[in-house]
């Protein structure tokens, strides 16, 4: 199981803080495509991805138990 965390505008778009998917073995890029299929409004949003609390590449492969986060442009400070 992969846990996907949503924040800020993405959280409001999905209506939830997190979701679980049975997607171990897919890449971060493939996960993004699957999420866009589920949430077409996500298309066109500028997004980075984190896996287990570190920024990830689209080519990184997800493993069972990974925590993924969708990171829209940050605006701290």
């Amino acid at each position: 199981m992969i846990t996907v965390h949503y924040f800020a505008g993405i959280r409001e778009m999905t209506g939830t803080h997190k979701e679980n998917f049975d997607w171990a073995g897919v890449t971060v890029g493939q996960l993004k495509e699957r999420l866009i299929q589920k949430y077409p409004q996500m298309q066109g949003n500028s997004l980075q991805f984190a896996v287990n609390e570190e920024y990830a590449l689209q080519t990184d492969i997800l493993s069972e138990g990974d925590a993924v986060a969708l990171i829209p442009p940050v605006s701290g400070g």
Partner: peptide, 28 residues
């Protein structure tokens, strides 16, 4: 430090106005 915070730290700010609101960093 403040420049790096604005680049890499996953924190988001929403401005709430009298007539609406917006996540900053999100252009929509």
């Amino acid at each position: 430090a403040i420049e790096r915070i604005k680049e890499i730290v996953p924190i988001w700010k929403k401005e709430i106005w009298n007539d609406g609101e917006q996540w900053i960093g999100d252009q929509k």
